[in-house]
Write a protein that binds this DNA or RNA. Structure first.
Length: 801
RNA sequence: GCCGAUGUGGCGGAAUAGGCAGACGCAAGGGACUUAAAAUCCCUCGAUGGCAACAUCGUAUCGGUUCAAGUCCGAUCAUCGGCACCA
C-alpha cells in the first residue's frame, strides 16, 4: 500500500500538539538537556529553506536525547521587533503589530508542518509587553550600574533607514540591512559599556565548547592588544600621549601623527604657522565618510604642524608633528609615535614626506620596506636596549618608562561600546525620563512595561528623531524623582535587545514576578547546545554573552556563560550554487517541498545534503533519493515476518549502525548517519524480509530524522505506546566486530589480492595466510621479502625485491 | 595586506588516529514488468589500454617524509568567509 504522507503527517502533528508530549517539565529527578536554535525574525516572506536546516538538526538531537531519557527543553519564539516589519507597515499602511501577528501565524504553521518537537507552551515574542517588560528591566539594571550612558558622538547613520546603526551593522560602509550609504552624524546616543567586559568575553571562551572559527572571530572582533602608553612632551610644554604595541622601537620614532580631530590642534591654533592649510585638511577629513576614509588606502596624506615640535622622551630629540587621517581618533589616544623603520604605514608616510627612517631592529632593510618581524630581530641604535630581542626590549623599555614617569603598560581593544539607540518606532521604548533638574531618571520598576504608544504614523523623521518624538502627550511627563515636568526618551532599543536574553525567558516564560524564577534558571541553564548562523558571531552571540555576564554579576543568573556549546550551519544555496534571492530567481519554497514530498523527506534531504557546517546547493533531483528512502522504509511492512529477534547474519550490522547513528548525531554528522541507515536498509532488503525486532530498532533509529512515518509504522505494527516513549537502542562493542574480515594483501603497497581471515588473527597467522594465497605466492616467487606489515583487520603489506 | 577555511567522479558528498580512494545518494546507460508511461526491481557507472583475468594512471599544482599519503611536512595556485590605516 502506498504511503500517504499528507494524511499521516497531519495526523501526528495534531496528536503531538494535543498530547503535549514535547512540553518540558521542570523535573529535578531527571537530567536536563537544553537545546536551542536561534529564534527567527518573522519576515513577510515566510520560512526560508535555510531555517529548517538548523531546526531539523537540533530537532534530531532533541528527539534522540529524549529517547535516551533526558528531560529536553527545545523551545521556539519570535524575534519580532525590527525594521523590515516597520518598513512594510509604512508602505502598506498596516500597523506593525498586525503585520507581526500575521507573519508569526504564517511562520508557525510552516514550522508545525515540518514536525519539529518544539515546546509550544513556552513560545515567546519579543514584542509582547509581558516579554519586553524584562528587556526594559535589564536596561534599567545596566543604567543603575553605570553600564548604560548617553553620549554625544559620531554615529553611523543610514540615510535610507534614517536610523543609527551599531558598528557591527555597518558592512563595507553600507547598511547591512538595506545596502544604502552610511554617513557619520553627531547625535546623543544611549550606549552600553560592552568594552568593560572585553577581557572576560575573550578569556572565558577557553572553557566553552564553541567551534573554533566562532571563537577566533570573536577574539579578532574584540581585538585585544598589549603595549604601552608613552608621554611625549612638546616645545609648547604640552603632553601628547600615544599608544603603541611596539614600545621597543621608541628610539626609532622620527615624527608623530595626530588624528585630524585631535583636541591639541585647536589649543595650538595661534602658534601654528600654517593653520589655514591645517584647517583645510581637517575639513576635508571631516567630510569623508568612514568608508571613503578607509578606501583611500593607497596614498597617505597629511600636513605638518609648523610651529610645534615634539620631544622623544627616550633621547630628547626634537621631532616634527603631522596630522593625517590614517590615525583614527576613536582608537588608542588618537595620536601615534611614527616608527617608519618598523611599521608599514609609517614607512609609506615617511617616504612620501621625506622623513628620516632609522633602523632600530636589525634583520631587514629599512630603506626598502618596513621590517616588522618581531620574532627574529635584535635591537640596534637604541641605547640601553641594544643587543636585546624585541620581547626583552619591550619589557625593559616599559619598566624604564614607568620608572621615569613617562608612560605605563596598557591594553587596548578594537571593540567599541554598543550604540543602543534607534530612532524608529518598532522597538522597545527606553524607560528613561529626561528631567531638566535631575538629568536622566529611570522609570521605577513598577511602571514597567513602558508600552509602545499606539500611533497613526510611524514614518521616520528627517530630523533624525524617533517617530515617538511627535507624540507630545506621551513625551511630556513628570519626573519620577522630583515630580517636575520632564520628557520621555523617544529613541527605542535595537533589534538585538530582545534576543540578548530570550533563552532565559524560555525557562519560565509566564513569570510576572521576575524574568525567570531562580529555580527554573538553576535547573535549565546554561543552554547545552546552541546552533545558529555565523553572521551572528559578532552581533547577537557577543551581545548576549555580554548581557548574560552582567546578569551573572548582579546575581540574576547562576552561570557565567549562557551557552555551553555553539555550532553553526552552512547556508543552503540556490540550485545554481548562488545565494538564494528573489532577484536571482533561485528561491526554493519550503511549502512546495513539503507539499510534494512531505516533511519527513524534506527533513531527511536537508540533513543529507552535505556537511552541516558547509554551504550546500539545493538539488531538486537529489531530494528524490530521500523520498525513495522513506517509501522503501514504509514497504518494509510488506516483507515483515513475525520473528522477535534480529537475525544472526544482521546482528553485527545492526550494532554497527546503532553505534554510527548514535555518534554521528552527537557530532552533527547527520549526512553519514542517514547514509548508514540507507546501507542497513540495503542489507535488509537483500534478504527479502525483515523481522519485527529489526523493524522496531530501525524505526527508533529513524525516528529523530523522520518522525511522522516512524510513528505511523510503530502504531500500525503495535510495538507498544508511541515511538516517543521508546528507549534509544544500545549497542555492544563486541557485537560490532565481525568474526571474519576480508583484508587486502599488498605487495610493495599495491593491492594484489584479498583474503578472508579471523578478525582476531595474530600477525603471524595473517601473514602466513597472505603468503599462502595463490596470487601472492606467484608474485613473490623469485623475490626476497624485506619487510612484512600487518594492520589488524585492514591489510597485509609485504615489501619484496 | 592580515586571520581562518576549503579544493576528491558528470553532480551532492564519504573515507577514526597515515592503512583497500570514491561509502551513501543523484544523474546517466542497459535490462525486467507494462498496450504505454509513471512507479518499482535488477545490472553497469573515475580515466586509459585489453575479449578477458588484469595493468597503468588518478584526491588543485610541484616537491618531500613513509613499507604505505586525500590524510603528515615545505612551497605554489584557486575559491570562499571574516577583519581591514586598530599604531
Amino acid at each position: 500500500m502506498e504511503y500517504n504522507f499528507k494524511k499521516v503527517e497531519k495526523k501526528w502533528q495534531d496528536i503531538w500538539e494535543e498530547s503535549g508530549v514535547f512540553h518540558a517539565k521542570l523535573d529535578k529527578s531527571k537530567e536536563k538537556f537544553y537545546c536551542l536554535v536561534e529564534f527567527p525574525y518573522p519576515s513577510g516572506q515566510g520560512l526560508h529553506v535555510g531555517h529548517p536546516r538548523s531546526y531539523t538538526a537540533l530537532d534530531i538531537i532533541a528527539r534522540k536525547k529524549r529517547l535516551q531519557g533526558y528531560n529536553v527543553l527545545y523551545p521556539m519564539g519570535w524575534d519580532a521587533f525590527g525594521l523590515p516589519t516597520e518598513n512594510y507597515a509604512i508602505k502598506n499602511k498596516i500597523h506593525p503589530e498586525i503585520v507581526t501577528r500575521d507573519n508569526i501565524a504564517k511562520f508557525k504553521s510552516q514550522l508545525k508542518a515540518l514536525g519539529f518537537s518544539f515546546d509550544w507552551s513556552r513560545e515567546i515574542n519579543t514584542t509582547d509587553p509581558k516579554y519586553y517588560k524584562w528587556t526594559q528591566w535589564i536596561f534599567l539594571k545596566l543604567f543603575e550600574k553605570g553600564l548604560a550612558y548617553k553620549k554625544e558622538m559620531a554615529v553611523n547613520w543610514c540615510t535610507s533607514c534614517k536610523c543609527v546603526l551599531a558598528n557591527e551593522e555597518v558592512v563595507n560602509g553600507v547598511c547591512e540591512r538595506c545596502g544604502n550609504e552610511v554617513v557619520r552624524k553627531v547625535k546623543k546616543q544611549w550606549m552600553l559599556k560592552i568594552t568593560e567586559y572585553a577581557d572576560r568575553l575573550i578569556d572565558d571562551l577557553d572553557e566553552l565548547d564553541y567551534i573554533e572559527r566562532v571563537k577566533l572571530q570573536q577574539i579578532n572582533w574584540i581585538g585585544r592588544s598589549h603595549g604601552a602608553q608613552v608621554d611625549f612632551t612638546t616645545t609648547e610644554g604640552d603632553t601628547i600621549t600615544v599608544y603603541t604595541t611596539r614600545p621597543d622601537t621608541l628610539f626609532g620614532a622620527t615624527y608623530m601623527v595626530l588624528s585630524p580631530e585631535h583636541p591639541l590642534i585647536d589649543k595650538w591654533a595661534d602658534k601654528l604657522q600654517n593653520i589655514d592649510e591645517i584647517n583645510a585638511y581637517r575639513d576635508m577629513a571631516a567630510h569623508k565618510s568612514d568608508f571613503e576614509r578607509t578606501e583611500i588606502n593607497k596614498e597617505k596624506t597629511g600636513v605638518e604642524l609648523k610651529g610645534v615640535r615634539a620631544i622623544n622622551p627616550v633621547n630628547s630629540k626634537e621631532i616634527p608633528i603631522f596630522i593625517s587621517d590614517y590615525v583614527l581618533i576613536s582608537y588608542g589616544t588618537g595620536a601615534i609615535m611614527a616608527v617608519p623603520g618598523h611599521d608599514t604605514r609609517d614607512w609609506e608616510f615617511a617616504k612620501k614626506f621625506g622623513l628620516p627612517i632609522i633602523e632600530v631592529v636589525s634583520g631587514g632593510d629599512v630603506e626598502k620596506e618596513a621590517y616588522t618581524d618581531i620574532e627574529n630581530g635584535i635591537m640596534v641604535n637604541s641605547g640601553f636596549l641594544n643587543g636585546l630581542s624585541v620581547e626583552e626590549a619591550k619589557e625593559k623599555i616599559i619598566e624604564w618608562l614607568i620608572k621615569e614617569g613617562k608612560g605605563e603598560r596598557k591594553t587596548n581593544y578594537k571593540l567599541r561600546d554598543w550604540v543602543f539607540s534607534r530612532q524608529r518606532y518598532w522597538g522597545e521604548p527606553i524607560p528613561i525620563v529626561e528631567c531638566p533638574k535631575c538629568g536622566y531618571v529611570p522609570l521605577p520598576e513598577s511602571e514597567l512595561p513602558l508600552e509602545l504608544p499606539k500611533v497613526e504614523s510611524y514614518e521616520p523623521t528627517d530630523t533624525g528623531e524617533s517617530p515617538l518624538a511627535k507624540l507630545t502627550d506621551w513625551v511630556n511627563t513628570t519626573c519620577p524623582k522630583c515630580g517636575g515636568a520632564a520628557k520621555r526618551e523617544t529613541d527605542t532599543m535595537p533589534q538585538w535587545a530582545g534576543s540578548s536574553w530570550y533563552f532565559l525567558r524560555y525557562c519560565d516564560p509566564h513569570n510576572d514576578e521576575c524574568l525567570a524564577s531562580k529555580e527554573a534558571l538553576d535547573y535549565w541553564t546554561p543552554v547545552d547546545w546552541y546552533n545558529g548562523g555565523m553572521e551572528h558571531t559578532t552581533l547577537h552571540l557577543l551581545y548576549s554573552r555580554f548581557w548574560h555576564k552582567f546578569l551573572y554579576d548582579i546575581g540574576v543568573v547562576p552561570t557565567k556563560e549562557p551557552y555551553k556549546k555553539r555550532t553553526s550551519h552552512g547556508m543552503i544555496l540556490g540550485e545554481n550554487g548562488e545565494k538564494m534571492s528573489k532577484s536571482r530567481g533561485n528561491v526554493v519554497n519550503p511549502d512546495e517541498i513539503v507539499n510534494t514530498y512531505g516533511a519527513d523527506t524534506m527533513r531527511l534531504y536537508e540533513m543529507f545534503i552535505g556537511d552541516f557546517e558547509k554551504a550546500a546547493p539545493w538539488s531538486s533531483t537529489s531530494i528524490k533519493g530521500c523520498k525513495r528512502f522513506v517509501d522503501r522504509y514504509w514497504s518494509f511492512r510488506d516483507i515483515l515476518i513475525p520473528d522477535k529477534k534480529i537475525r544472526d547474519e544482521l546482528l553485527s550490522s545492526f550494532h554497527k549502525t546503532i553505534k554510527k547513528v548514535t555518534h554521528d548525531i552527537d557530532n552533527l554528522k547527520m549526512n553519514t548517519a542517514i547514509a548508514a541507515l540507507m546501507s542497513l536498509m540495503n542489507e535488509i532488503s537483500e534478504t527479502g524480509k525483515i523481522t519485527r525486532e529489526e523493524l522496531r530498532i530501525f524505526t527508533i533509529l529513524l525516528n529523530p530524522f523522520a518522525p511522522h512515518v516512524t510513528e505511523e509504522v510503530w502504531e500500525l505494527e503495535g510495538f507498544g505506546g508511541r515511538v516517543t516513549d521508546a528507549k534509544w537502542p544500545e549497542y555492544s562493542e563486541e557485537l560490532c566486530e565481525e568474526k571474519k574480515v576480508e583484508i587486502a594483501v599488498q605487495i610493495n603497497g599495491k593491492v594484489r589480492s584479498r583474503i578472508v581471515i579471523d578478525a582476531d588473527a595474530t600477525q603471524e597467522q595473517a601473514i602466513a595466510d597472505a603468503k599462502a594465497d595463490a596470487r601472492i605466492r606467484e608474485e613473490l616467487s623469485g623475490k626476497t621479502v624485506l619487510k612484512e606489515i600487518y594492520v589488524k583487520g585492514k591489510l597485509v603489506n609485504i615489501v619484496a625485491k
